[in-house]
Design a protein around this nucleic acid. Structure first.
Lengths: 114, 114
DNA sequence: AAGTTAATTAGCTTGTTGGTGAAATACAGA
DNA sequence: TCTGTATTTCACCAACAAGCTAATTAACTT
C-alpha cells in the first residue's frame, strides 16, 4: 500500500467488497456483523477489509458495548472526487464528439434512406 | 487485480506514478520515453505501469514508426467520478452539520451513560 | 547489412493482499 | 462467575504487484 492518502483511498476503493461496504454505510452506522451479513466471507476477512477502509480514513469506528459500529467518513471520497474532477473536460469533450458523431451517423442514415 | 472495470480503474489510480502519467497525458499524446522521463524508474517498470493503465482502459496506444504514443482515455475516469459522486451529499452541503450532529449525539449518549 | 533507438518480454526477487481456521479479547447478562 | 456474543489477532498460504537486469522485437538510419 502506498503511503500517501490519495493512493490509500484509491487502493481501498479498488475492491468491490469494500465499495459495497461503503454503500451499506450510506444508510447509517452499522456493526461489523451487520456489515458482514451480505458477504460470503469469514469474519476475519471482513475485519481486514474494514481495517483497510479505516486506514484510508474512509470509515471511523466507535465503541458501544461489545459492538464496534462503523460510520462513513466522506473526507477521502471528496479528495478522490476532486482529483478525478480535473479530468472532467476530457470526458465531456468525448461525449460531445460521440454525440456529434452519432448525429452525423443518423444524418447519413436518413440520407441513405431517402 | 479485480476483473470488474471499476475495480481495475481504482486499482490503476492507486499509484502516484500512474496518476502522474495521466496528468502528463492531459497535455496530449506522448511516447513511452517522454512519459518515463520524469521518473526514476527503469523502462520496463514504466512499461508495466502503462500496461496497467491500458488494461483499465485509462489510456490507449497508437503506433507511429518505432514509437507507441499513448493518449488519455477518459471513459473509466467518468465511471469513477460517477461512482464517487453518489457520496457527494456526505461531504458537500452538510459535512459540517453532519459532523456536529454526530458529535452532539455522542455527547447525549455519554450524558445518558452518566 | 549493420547499427541505433523505442519499447516490450522474460525471469527473478521482494513485499503486499486477501483469504482461511483457531485462538484470544472484550463485554453483557444470567 | 460462567456463558454467550462480537470482534480482533495470530499464524499461515496462495496470488499478485512492483521493481530490477538482461535479452528480444520492431522500425528507422546509414
Amino acid at each position: 500500500m502506498k503511503s500517501d492518502p490519495l493512493s490509500a483511498a484509491f487502493a481501498a476503493l479498488a475492491d468491490p467488497t469494500r465499495r459495497a461496504m461503503l454503500t451499506r454505510l450510506c444508510e447509517g452506522e452499522a456493526t461489523v456483523n451487520e456489515i458482514a451479513a451480505p458477504f460470503d466471507l469469514s469474519l476475519p476477512a471482513i475485519s481486514k477489509h474494514l481495517k483497510v477502509l479505516e486506514g484510508a480514513g474512509l470509515i471511523s469506528r466507535g465503541r458501544a458495548a461489545q459492538f464496534r459500529p462503523c460510520r462513513l467518513e466522506p473526507g477521502p471520497l471528496k479528495d478522490v472526487a476532486d482529483w478525478v474532477e480535473r479530468y472532467r473536460r476530457f470526458w465531456d469533450e468525448s461525449l460531445d464528439r460521440l454525440d456529434s458523431y452519432l448525429k452525423e451517423i443518423q444524418h447519413k442514415e436518413k440520407s441513405d434512406d431517402a
